[in-house]
Design a protein around this nucleic acid. Structure first.
Lengths: 118, 118
DNA sequence: TGAGAAATTCACCAAATGGTTAATTAACCG
DNA sequence: CGGTTAATTAACCATTTGGTGAATTTCTCA
């Protein structure tokens, strides 16, 4: 699992989010803490596979693990999503301001056209 | 793992963003269109490696390719980042509202405590 | 003390990823 | 036409990823 040079936090977070099973796990955890078997319930994969997904999420800081009796409950952690949000919004703002400037230019020169939206 | 069944759009986008080289390429493209060799400039990897990164970005819909003479300029595309932003904000809102509710509860019971940011 | 439940670790496998060099395609220019 | 530049494709390699089943750890409880 461990790479020689550990990847940066943002890369770990994006990589962790790049799997639908893991996103579904996070969605479930957004509603509250949960045990591993409970989390595994909706999926057609083995428990060890779930454990691996949880390790990926934990390494990305997206969840933390607790311990009570033989359960290791998982809890959603907020910080990494905040970083992702910041990164995404930064670049959205950058290209949106570029498009705005282009839009203004087009407005000045071709008041008819109002194209956007891919 | 599911190559025959192509992964969903959000997974493709997150996976594309999970590499620092690709994020740097996008950052560069946020300032305007660029050719491949120009994009490759800052990196210590070969041109074919850059081509592969561009394919990943294109498959995720994060860039589009043009064509003029022997150049294939790359352009940033906005739609997928909007989806990422929507997903992230949805879950941020979900757990933040949970934390808010917890905060209110704590307020009612321990008016001293005030929450802080990392 | 030991059966059973929760979860992890182990050993393995196939496919995907990220990189390389060498060869090839596509367009320009003289 | 031939040479040059831009970029891609091809073939290959090492590592990572996502999965499996079997064994093991850790805890509860009768």
């Amino acid at each position: 699992m461990q790479s020689t040079l550990s990847a940066d936090a943002l890369s770990l977070t994006f990589a962790a989010l790049a799997d639908p099973t893991r996103r579904a796990i996070l969605a479930r955890l957004a509603q509250g803490e949960s045990s591993v078997t409970e989390l595994a319930q909706p999926f057609a994969i083995s428990l060890p596979a779930i454990t691996k997904h949880l390790k990926v999420l934990q390494r990305a800081g997206l969840i933390s693990r607790g311990r009570q009796a033989q359960w290791r409950p998982c809890k959603l952690e907020t910080a990494p999503l905040r970083d992702v949000s910041a990164w995404v919004d930064l670049y959205r703002r950058q290209w949106e301001s570029r498009l705005d400037r282009l839009g203004e230019f087009l407005q000045e020169n071709h008041p008819q056209e109002s194209n956007n939206e891919g």
